[in-house]
């Protein structure tokens, strides 16, 4: 039996955002989104707005480090930290 942690559920939802909203397929949660050239400035902005909309959170973007956006795993950690909705995400 496998257990779905909140972070792994965020990873699934973020991967879905990449594929459905940004039309980008992510090979792995640890793929480097910056060094691979997947995210340019416009895609990053679109991603951040989408994350805020989808997860109902407001990210303190100006206070964050670029490293927070380097991979889907790190983004999931970020969402987990700032998820003020306190709902347990479903990994569907």
């Amino acid at each position: 039996m496998t257990h779905s942690t909140p972070t792994s559920a965020w990873i699934i939802r973020l991967t879905k955002i990449f594929s459905e909203r940004l039309l980008i397929r992510i090979e792995s949660p640890d793929t480097d989104l910056l060094d691979s050239g997947i995210l340019d400035s416009m895609k990053l902005v679109e991603l951040l707005f989408t994350i805020e909309q989808e997860f109902g959170i407001r990210l303190p973007i100006a206070d964050l480090d670029i490293e927070s956006f380097r991979s889907v795993s790190r983004l999931a950690g970020l969402v987990d930290r700032f998820n003020v909705m306190s709902e347990v995400p479903t990994a569907t």
């Binding site: 039309l23 980008i24 910056l34 691979s36």
Partner: peptide, 8 residues
Amino acid sequence: LQHPTSQV
């Protein structure tokens, strides 16, 4: 779906 084309 897009795949990255320009690798850093």
